[in-house]
Design a protein around this nucleic acid. Structure first.
Length: 873
RNA sequence: GCGGGCGUGGUGGAAUCGGUAGACACAAGGGACUUAAAAUCCCUCGGCUUCGGCCUUGCGGGUUCGAUCCCCGCCGCCCGCACCA
């Protein structure tokens, strides 16, 4: 037995079948044990799984199997984020229907995932493109509509000219579409919106309670929501004012700098601008120019601050003075009021603008220690703290006091029957535009009627199912050009009407799947009691790239579902973990083309590592270590790894070495190292099985030193591994397991005779069983096989976590380092409960200490019980 | 520019309520077994050393009996956001 190599492929298939047949991982909703919901972000069915999936799902499976062994009723489901563009691209390129492309990919990837031996409840599986799923999503849409959480309005949208669809702000990265990479244009379209901004404040403040989320993600969300407190200030306009536009309002977070004002600027899209443009060709031309300016990061960065003087002026609220009104290209319409007052001395943008148009720059905040008679602003605006000056009644006050004083004065003053100032909180977060001009998505369930307007599809008429007979010959939306699908009669007046042909952003699909998993077959979107019993997800694991989009949308959706009565909580994810990427070396041929790892061999010689093509023996350049990607061809196919090494090796390697939140480099040597280690465990367990007494043999209370030492090591490891898994520090857990295996290996090799007696041998068995149980979450197949080699009948997957014997963690004697002036010079071994005086005496008696003291008394001796002794000479 | 994070051997990393720096692994070198290879096992492995020790956690200071850990100032790298008034 011990000499046989472990055959991963045969063993893994066998245990996967056995677990499946015994329904070990099926989860019942009425199980009375405490619940634990572990979820990994579900995959997009692109065709094949990649190493990133292996890492992600290996981590989740460790948590799931561990919690199951600890007695929890674990929910660990899997599904498919199955709507989206690639299916339509495939349809265009390969003449395959998005539906068959998607479901065939799912079938492949399901098999691949199953070969990993994940402890998933496959009975709960669904794809978001299942009619059964998206019909419930349509019901949620209608519920949200009823609750006023959905609106429809004309808006400027980010238009992706390649994908020919609209993108949310969050989906525009550096001015480019997040999927296509094409430069995004601005267009005006009528769009459906989820009113996520209704929850801005709550989404922000609730972040404080998400203490099991990475701080980084919370910070990113805080920045994204972008709360700012300020004042809305009303100004009186003078000059050739258009009819009915006597006032203009600005939003400012710096009312304290009002006395430093030198101009007022309007957005090109401000109503007043529009009114002025109607009679002024010059203004109209300037507005046109602003619109042409791109919104890409590059365009914004290089764009100069430019403006057009309208000839209008505004009156200062406190001073007897007027200031020019400009239309400026840097003022955004959709933030604040679309107008600002410019204080060049204390705002860099305003300063740039003022310099260009030779406007006055009056400093009103004096930095600490600066001289008020000489302080001036040159090229850099002063945005720091200080005392207000040049500001009449504000002089001498702090920035905070001045803000408050101005706010108070203006909100109690009246200008044209309205308060001159209003305190206001602004958010950067905008409503979530969900309309997409695509086929492969969830249809928005509304009907447009010429006489009744927008009419929701009655719930009895759901689902609004996607038609299957569509073509992808041309760009644009196949639903829109389908000959019959969109033609329906109005549910209200029965007149001919048209279906909405936009579908929902696919981020909608992933915003509630975690809730659907709790009752995947329910007629309603959820069964609220069941959802509330399972949610929140105790541990959610996925990539950092979803820090804002998916996670913020899901937080909104949970709140919206609460309003609509589908769940009873606000926050869907109690614990969040963002794992790092899998990276790999890159290789390039002489012609610059990328070469995949499978096509090369590496030679390590005197001159370092060199790589050669397998087919032509031509040398290739070893490049940077980068994220695995198809474009750089530096991917490793999980299926090939699983077929050659086994799933356990792939899982083990993905969990070893690197901390899970950091990137991990896939190397062939690393994989082989993991494989070697698992073979070693197999051999050691085999040898243990030969000399160990039958299962259940009690371990005597009194053991010989060798057995006791080993037993203590096993329990120490048990405690350490449990803690490491709880805190998701898998690399640390694995290192502790390595140590235990080294201890077991050396015990068997060097002290075999010490384990001859049955009692001592029982300790050997106990150690092997603990080892196997500790490895089970990471390498479940090997562990299960070892468990049975050790003679156990019941499946390990159903067995509880080992019982810790706390007494074994306590040593009778402790060896403490002895420092002299902070540097370690010796060790002293004392009874564990020795008092400080005893320890001090023992330490001072040491030869090294005596030598250092040269007969003198120590100045001071610090004894930290059970930790350290420091002698100050 | 703003915000956040990180700098430890050849490499990935371990050790933080301030208490033995370098666990564990990979790579490398040496040895055993073998006709040979694979597999396996054993040893060495931060630097310097006059073999007593000395130096070493990006750099420079500080606090402390004691600093990878706390404080101040630099340097470097990574990530996120960015005309948000």
């Amino acid at each position: 037995m011990a000499s046989e190599r472990y055959n991963a492929r045969v063993t893994e298939t066998r245990w996967q079948k056995a677990w499946d047949e015994a329904k070990v991982f099926a989860t019942a909703n009425d199980d009375p044990r405490p619940k634990y919901y572990v979820l990994e972000m579900f995959p997009y069915p692109s065709g094949r799984i990649h190493m990133g999936h292996v890492r992600n799902y290996a981590m989740g499976d460790v948590v799931a199997r561990y919690k199951r062994a600890r007695g929890f009723n674990v929910l660990h489901p899997m599904g498919w984020d199955a709507f989206g563009m690639p299916a339509e691209n495939a349809a265009m390129q390969n003449k395959v229907h998005p539906k068959s492309w998607t479901y065939s990919n799912i079938a492949t990837m399901r098999d691949q995932l199953k070969s990993m031996g994940l402890s998933l409840d496959w009975a709960r599986e669904f794809a978001t493109c299942d009619v059964a799923y998206y019909s419930r999503q349509q019901r949620l849409f209608l519920d949200f509509l009823d609750k006023g959480l959905v609106t429809r309005r004309k808006s400027k949208v980010n238009w992706d000219p390649v994908d020919m669809t609209v993108l949310a702000n969050e989906q525009v990265i550096d001015g480019k579409g997040w999927r296509s990479g094409a430069t995004v244009e601005q267009r005006e379209l009528v769009q459906w919106f989820f009113k996520i901004s209704d929850f801005s404040e709550d989404l922000l403040t609730a972040l404080d309670g998400l203490d099991r989320w990475p701080e980084k993600v919370r910070t990113m969300q805080r920045n994204w929501i972008g709360r700012s407190e300020g004042l809305r200030v009303r100004f009186q306009l003078d000059g050739a004012v258009p009819e009915g536009q006597d006032f203009v309002e600005v939003f400012t977070t710096r009312p304290d700098t009002l006395f430093g004002m030198s101009f007022l600027a309007l957005s090109a899209d401000h109503p007043l601008t529009t009114a002025l443009a109607a009679t002024s060709p010059e203004i109209a031309a300037f507005v046109e120019e602003c619109h042409r300016m791109g919104t890409s990061a590059a365009a914004v960065e290089t764009a100069e601050k430019r403006g057009y003087n309208t000839g209008l002026v505004v009156r200062h609220p406190f001073l007897d003075a007027v200031f020019p009104v400009y239309v400026a290209n840097f003022v955004l319409m959709d933030y604040g009021t679309g107008a600002i007052f410019g204080c060049p001395a204390h705002d860099q943008r305003d300063l740039d603008f003022a310099r260009r148009y030779h406007l006055t720059v009056t400093p009103v905040v004096l930095p600490e220690g600066a001289d008020p008679t000489t302080f001036a602003v040159a090229d850099e605006a002063y945005t720091g703290e200080g005392r207000i000056f040049n500001s009449a009644f504000l002089d001498g006050h702090s920035v905070a006091e001045a803000k408050e004083m101005v706010a108070h004065r203006l909100e109690t003053a009246t200008l044209g029957q309205a308060p001159q100032g209003t305190r206001q909180v602004n958010y950067r977060l905008r409503d979530w535009g969900i309309s997409r001009q695509r086929y492969w998505g969830c249809p928005i369930p509304v009907i447009h009627c010429d006489s009744c307007g927008v009419v929701p599809v009655p719930r009895k008429d759901l689902p609004v199912a996607l038609p299957e007979d569509v073509d992808f010959d041309r760009p644009g939306n196949p639903l829109d050009r389908h000959p019959t699908w969109k033609h329906v009669s109005c549910p209200v007046c029965a007149a001919p009407a048209r279906r909405e042909t936009d579908t929902m952003d696919t981020f909608v699909d992933s915003s509630w799947y975690f809730a659907r998993f709790t009752a995947p077959d329910a007629d309603d979107p959820t069964i609220p009691e069941v959802a509330d019993a399972w949610l929140p997800v105790d541990q959610y694991i996925g990539g950092i790239e979803h820090a804002i989009l998916h996670l913020l949308y899901s937080r909104f959706f949970t709140r919206a579902m609460k309003v609509a009565g589908h769940v009873g909580l606000d926050e869907p994810f109690r614990g969040l973990f963002t794992q790092g990427m899998v990276i790999h070396e890159t290789y390039r041929a002489a012609d610059g083309s990328w070469v995949s790892p499978a096509e090369i061999r590496i030679e390590a010689g005197e001159t370092g590592r060199r790589a050669y093509r397998l087919d032509t023996a031509e040398e290739v350049t070893i490049g940077a270590i980068e994220k695995m990607s198809k474009s750089k061809r530096n991917t490793v196919d999980p299926t090939e790894i699983i077929e050659s090494f086994g799933a356990d090796t792939a899982r083990w390697f993905m969990l070893s070495d690197s901390p899970p939140e950091r990137d991990v480099e896939w190397t062939d040597q690393g994989a082989q190292g993991s494989s070697r280690f698992l073979q070693r465990v197999w051999r050691l367990v085999g040898e243990t099985a030969e000399i160990a007494p039958p299962p259940g043999t009690p371990v005597p209370d009194v053991l010989a030193p060798a057995a006791l030492t080993l037993r203590k090591a096993a329990h120490r490891t048990l405690a350490a591994v449990g803690e490491a898994i709880e805190t998701l520090r898998f690399n640390v857990a694995l290192a502790k397991i390595y140590e235990l295996v080294n201890a077991l290996g050396s015990a068997i090799a060097n002290e075999r005779a010490a384990f001859a007696a049955p009692g001592e041998a029982a300790a050997l068995r106990e150690t092997a069983e603990i080892l196997v149980k500790l490895m089970a979450p990471m390498t479940p197949h090997l562990a299960e096989e070892c468990w049975h080699v050790l003679g156990n009948g019941e499946m390990l997957a159903m067995s509880p976590w080992p019982e810790l014997v706390p007494a074994l963690l306590v040593e009778d004697e402790v060896t403490m380092p002895v420092q002299i002036n902070g540097k370690k010079r010796a060790d002293v071994t004392v009874p564990r409960d020795a008092d400080a005086a005893t320890v001090e005496k023992a330490a001072l008696a040491l030869e090294a200490v005596q030598r250092a003291l040269e007969g003198k008394a120590p100045k001071k001796v610090i004894v930290v019980p059970q930790r350290i002794v420091n002698v100050v000479a």
